[in-house]
Design a protein around this nucleic acid. Structure first.
Lengths: 114, 114
DNA sequence: ATAACATATGAACAAATATTCATATGTTAA
DNA sequence: TTAACATATGAATATTTGTTCATATGTTAT
């Protein structure tokens, strides 16, 4: 009875509903999945990136165009495009010295952003 | 010809495709909408909050239970629940000294999180 | 080759955020 | 009423993140 608490020594409270906690624990996805999903949402969680994505939903655009549209520096846009690229939300193609960005997976975006 | 550039003096580049920029600009949602949408995604963009939401998708839980499940302090969980509450993703009911949290809008969550 | 340009990138800085710690509030039990 | 408890909250701290600045890379035009 007193060693009941000891199972949860890392928490600063008593378990109120052990059955529910165990049931829910059994249904939780692996930590890595939670992390990856949160990272994906994080990519959408910034006004600048949201603006870029919305713009690219209309048309492929080069970095300079996106900067003008956003009224921000090319450098700032380039940094954010890297984040979006790492999240696989945008892809790019090069044409000479110009780099054109577009949505990477139109399917994910159209179902997520409506 | 030279005053063409001057329209975009706030950017450190030349407009490559003015037509596209203007077309896209006309289709962009108001800044406030972009901001609000980004804020919503931001609420999902943290592993701790994602874990809480996933847990609450299984069952209503009290703060202490969530802390045990998450292996985090009650205080940390309470702070994050406040963020989720402000984003209207969770709601709560009080029963004595225990506060039970649950998903606020099952519809939004089920369509967003699958 | 050199200059001009589009973009990328690393470092520095500023701002936002997550967690901890101490403490406050409100409820139940003694 | 006092003690124990569940939760909330403000301040402090540590970490993360967004932007700027300087500079690098690679391409085109001269």
């Amino acid at each position: 009875m007193s060693d009941y608490k000891i199972k949860f020594y890392k928490c600063d409270c008593n378990v109120i509903h052990e059955e529910i906690v165990n049931m829910v624990k059994g249904k939780m996805p692996p930590e890595e999945n939670l992390y990856n999903l949160a990272e994906l949402f994080k990519a959408f969680g910034d006004t600048t990136r949201m603006r870029i994505l919305w713009a690219l939903a209309e048309s492929e655009m080069c970095v300079c165009d996106i900067a003008v549209l956003s009224n921000m520096t090319v450098s700032a846009i380039s940094h954010q495009l890297r984040v979006l690229k790492q999240a696989r939300l945008v892809k790019y193609r090069k044409d000479g010295k110009i780099v054109y960005y577009s949505l990477d997976d139109e399917h994910i975006l159209s179902s997520t952003m409506g």
